[in-house]
């Protein structure tokens, strides 16, 4: 028993150390948001809090941060919801609806290969495509491309979780006369909630932070947060303080999402389903 206690203590020690390493730079970024550029450049540890960075970020004419923030919220939410839905459906289809085995293999391999392409080389063809149908500078185009970019990880992760659903649960539901949509709604989606929560957070964050595609497929009004922040990393002046302020505000939705999603990444979800 003493062994276990020491083990616990050791785990806590490692976790605390890890947390410290993670959090120090974040705290430093938070401080940077309240420093003047010169205090930041000189690495002053003692400084008078300064709100100019937030003023420039939120109220200056050159910045569209508030509008861009809303763009990001819309694009990331919609594209995440679409990825989760499409990916779970596809994973279920591939592994539980008796496709010949080369179908899932091909889809998975294809999506991995697609995921390997640096997004920067995709931007050109996408721009030409959307411009020709007049969809450049629209949210629709950006949402669709973000779905495409994040679908590989969605399908791969959701496949793992879908395959973990005990086949017996499904069979008994089939015997009870459940149709495929009922099965999806009542069995599949509830059982893969931890996977949905984890994938959802990742996809949301990837979409929220995506830069190269967002830059080229948006205009000033539809631009997203990373584009807004990147404007402060200028050729002749990197406004670190304003960038830090922008970053600090930009992680709020993800942190909220994370706290909300925590409830879904809990143990024993499978236990309650009669397993």
């Amino acid at each position: 028993m003493a062994n276990v206690r020491w083990g616990r203590l050791g785990m806590h020690a490692v976790l605390a150390l890890g947390a410290l390493v993670v959090i120090l730079p974040v705290v430093w970024i938070a401080f940077a948001a309240f420093k003047t550029q010169i205090a930041l450049l000189r690495g002053d540890l003692v400084f008078t809090p300064y709100l100019g960075n937030f003023e420039e970020l939120l109220f200056s004419k050159a910045s569209d941060y508030p509008a861009n923030f809303l763009s990001s919220a819309w694009v990331a939410s919609v594209s995440t919801a679409m990825v989760l839905l499409i990916a779970t459906l596809a994973a279920y289809s591939m592994y539980r609806l008796r496709w010949p085995s080369w179908v899932p293999a091909l889809v998975l391999m294809g999506s991995l290969v697609f995921h390997m392409i640096p997004p920067i080389t995709l931007v050109g063809p996408w721009y030409v495509m959307f411009r020709s149908i007049g969809w450049d500078s629209t949210y629709t185009a950006l949402v669709l491309t973000h779905v495409a970019l994040n679908l590989p990880i969605g399908i791969a992760v959701m496949s793992v979780f879908v395959r973990d659903i005990p086949i017996e649960i499904e069979e008994s539901a089939r015997l009870d006369g459940s149709s495929t949509p009922q099965m999806l709604w009542h069995i599949v989606f509830p059982l893969v909630r931890p996977g949905l929560a984890a994938t959802g957070i990742l996809v949301f964050v990837f979409s929220w932070n995506e830069f190269a595609v967002a830059l080229n497929l948006t205009s000033r009004q539809t631009a997203t947060v990373p584009v807004a922040i990147a404007k402060f990393a200028q050729e002749y002046e990197i406004k670190n303080g304003v960038m830090a302020a922008g970053a600090l505000l930009s992680i709020i939705p993800a942190v909220l999402l994370l706290l909300f999603a925590q409830r879904h990444i809990v143990k024993g979800l499978t236990a309650g389903t009669g397993k």
């Binding site: 974040v26 960038m243 922008g246």
Partner: peptide, 13 residues
């Protein structure tokens, strides 16, 4: 929550 913080930040920052 703490361990997930870094991935939330934009790469450019």
């Amino acid at each position: 929550t703490i361990f997930l913080l870094p991935i939330l930040l934009p790469g450019i920052v």
